[in-house]
């Protein structure tokens, strides 16, 4: 396992300066995510136009993987509809959990999360934001956890 593979520059950058960070005013839905194992918490807000995410922001406290993953996710899903987001999440999940998986060009910057697959204990850190987004899209304000 190689630390540089986990903590790539993109990850460290998004951890230090998370994009779309802070509450979204005028949100249609929000959800809280919590990883009880490590104490990571985050909130995701979305504003919808039909099936499409018109705007998304998040806020929370977590490790670098959790924060960077959420930041990258907000950039990646903005403007996409629910079906496209689901497809994207499945690609990301495969990347996070299969060491042999190679990042498809369509993943864009999310490909920086590839190193997580070498660190199974950290997969939940990277998926928390996706579960939380899903909860916001599906169930509105209910909280989700990764446990």
């Amino acid at each position: 396992m190689d630390l540089k593979d986990l903590y790539r520059d993109v990850i460290l950058d998004h951890n230090r300066r998370p994009r779309n960070f802070g509450a979204l005013t005028g949100a249609d839905a929000q959800a809280d995510g919590h990883n009880p194992l490590c104490g990571d918490r985050l909130t995701v807000w979305v504003r919808l136009e039909g099936e499409r995410i018109a705007d998304i922001r998040f806020e929370g406290k977590g490790c670098a993987i959790s924060t960077a993953s959420a930041s990258l996710m907000t950039e990646a899903v903005k403007g996409k509809d629910k079906a496209a987001i689901q497809a994207l999440y499945e690609q990301v999940h495969t990347l996070l959990t299969h060491q042999e998986a190679t990042a498809d060009a369509s993943l864009g910057k999310l490909a920086a999360l590839a190193g997580v697959s070498e660190f199974p204990a950290r997969v939940k850190c990277a998926t928390l934001c996706w579960h939380t987004l899903n909860a916001a899209l599906e169930r509105g304000a209910d909280a989700v956890t990764t446990e």
């Binding site: 630390l3 104490g39 977590g62 490790c63 670098a64 993987i65 959790s66 660190f119 950290r122």
Partner: peptide
């Protein structure tokens, strides 16, 4: 600037086992 969970992973890569959480 470094969450304990990240610290735990980095220390583990150096063979150092600590508890984080």
């Amino acid at each position: 600037g470094c969450h304990p969970h990240d610290l735990g992973t980095i220390l583990d890569s150096e063979g150092v086992a600590i508890r984080t959480g």
